[in-house]
Design a protein around this nucleic acid. Structure first.
Length: 157
DNA sequence: GTATTGATCTTCT
DNA sequence: GAAGATCAATACA
């Protein structure tokens, strides 16, 4: 269950799409629903979902999720037992789901992926984004209220 | 406990 | 050659 996301769009200096379409972010300008995966700091993968029509260059970064199934698989991939740390963070999330550059450009609604809306209405809180140096004051980080699986307030198991 | 830095790779200057 | 939408190990108080 996704509990934390961040928004990125073309007029945002911190966004990969800010400087226009480039080799790295071509997927970000693709059709909505595509998965945009890029390498971060050389060692992590970060997963985004394109959320505007083709050519716009807007996407949502998946920052954290609450593991609800296949915990053993995720724990094995992360080498961790603490459920609160399995996917609390962009790099951790991709590692837990085994997402890599090979998944860049795939449709989030097909193949190995599944996307479902919440079963009930959820309470979402906005806050400053994490880990960026530009436009860090924009309240474009959206997290599930009260969730202990978000990446910021380091959850204590 | 908080602060700092290394790991490691793609893209841009 | 430097920096980045990060993580985790190490250094210090």
């Amino acid at each position: 269950m996704i509990v934390e996301t961040e928004a990125y769009e073309p007029t945002d200096p911190a966004s990969h799409s800010f400087a226009g379409k480039k080799t790295r972010n071509a997927t970000m300008f693709g059709a909505p629903g595509l998965l945009y995966v890029y390498r971060s700091y050389g060692i992590h993968w970060c997963a985004n979902v394109v959320c505007c029509e083709e050519g716009v260059g807007a996407a949502v970064l998946l920052r954290a999720l609450e593991p609800t199934d296949r915990l053993d698989v995720m724990r094995a991939r992360r080498g961790l037992d603490d459920i609160g740390l399995l996917a609390a963070g962009p790099g951790r999330l991709t590692q837990a789901l085994d997402i890599s550059g090979a998944h860049d450009g795939l449709d989030i609604l097909t193949s190995p992926f599944t996307m479902r809306p919440p079963e009930a209405s959820v309470e979402v809180v906005a806050s400053p984004r994490v880990g960026i140096t530009l436009a860090a004051d924009r309240l474009w980080r959206y997290s599930l209220a009260g969730s202990s699986f978000v990446s910021r307030p380091r959850p204590r198991a």
